[in-house]
């Protein structure tokens, strides 16, 4: 179980890193250009954000200072991005394979095709559904309190994942209203937001960033699920 998760997670993480550098990193750097003031969007500047809001909202300023203090070389920065991308996809793979194991104890077979569907469901649970409330954050955007957002994020992930599993594997008719309720609940509660928008990056860049992050996420989760399902099936039949 662990070996399959490690292999699938590393493979998916490497593909994710490749797609990240092909599509996403350039947009992050562009956003940081606006965040640091190196570039200026015509209607916005970090200096124009009310100081109390910037502080209360979690502090784009602190973030910029932290990044400047560390000032890693591009090689170090990108190397760490590859490393952490692999780590996060190994964590996704661990949870995915745990799901396979749970399905098996309930008498459900998981192979490559089911794995692909699980991967897409994982993308919906971990990236798409949370993004409805908390869109992927381009550097240079300002959001609500970090702790509140993290709590909402974990809640949205847990409820969405459980609801999808219930829809796929539940036996009773009541699974439909229950699952729909669980899918809707985080969005009825609503993600933490701030009262106004203080982001200094252009909306065009933010939109491009969100779209690319979600596109890359779907592609890599599909690969992750397929590979993990394939390995799972082989380990069961070996």
């Amino acid at each position: 179980m662990l070996t399959g998760a490690l292999f699938a997670g590393c493979a998916a993480g490497l593909i994710a890193a490749l797609l990240h550098f092909a599509f996403v990193q350039e947009v992050i750097l562009l956003g940081e250009g606006y965040e640091t003031g190196e570039l200026t969007h015509f209607s916005g500047s970090a200096l124009e954000a009310p100081a109390d809001h910037a502080h209360e909202a979690g502090a784009a300023d602190d973030h910029v200072q932290g990044a400047e203090a560390a000032d890693p070389s591009a090689l170090t920065r990108n190397g760490l991005t590859v490393l952490f991308t692999i780590l996060i996809y190994v964590s996704y793979a661990g949870l995915l394979v745990a799901g396979f194991g749970l399905a098996e104890t309930l008498g459900k077979r998981v192979g490559a095709v089911e794995g692909l569907l699980w991967g897409i469901a994982g993308f919906v649970s971990f990236q798409l559904a949370p993004a409805l409330g908390l869109p992927p954050e381009l550097p240079g955007t300002v959001a609500a309190d970090l702790g509140d957002r993290q709590v909402w994020w974990w809640g949205a992930v847990a409820l969405t994942g459980t609801a999808l599993a219930l829809l796929a594997y539940g036996h009773h008719a009541w699974k439909y209203p229950l699952a729909v309720g669980m899918l809707a609940l985080p969005h009825i509660i609503g993600a933490p937001t701030i009262d106004e928008y203080y982001g200094v990056a252009p909306p065009e860049v933010g939109a491009m960033f969100s779209a690319r992050v979600l596109g890359v996420g779907l592609a890599v989760w599909a690969v992750l699920g397929w590979v993990a399902g394939q390995l799972w099936e082989r380990s069961r039949t070996a």
């Binding site: 996403v24 992050i28 784009a60 991308t85 954050e137 970090l146 994020w153």
Partner: peptide, 8 residues
């Protein structure tokens, strides 16, 4: 940022 986690 690239996986949509709340970052800072």
């Amino acid at each position: 940022h690239a996986t949509g986690f709340p970052c800072h």
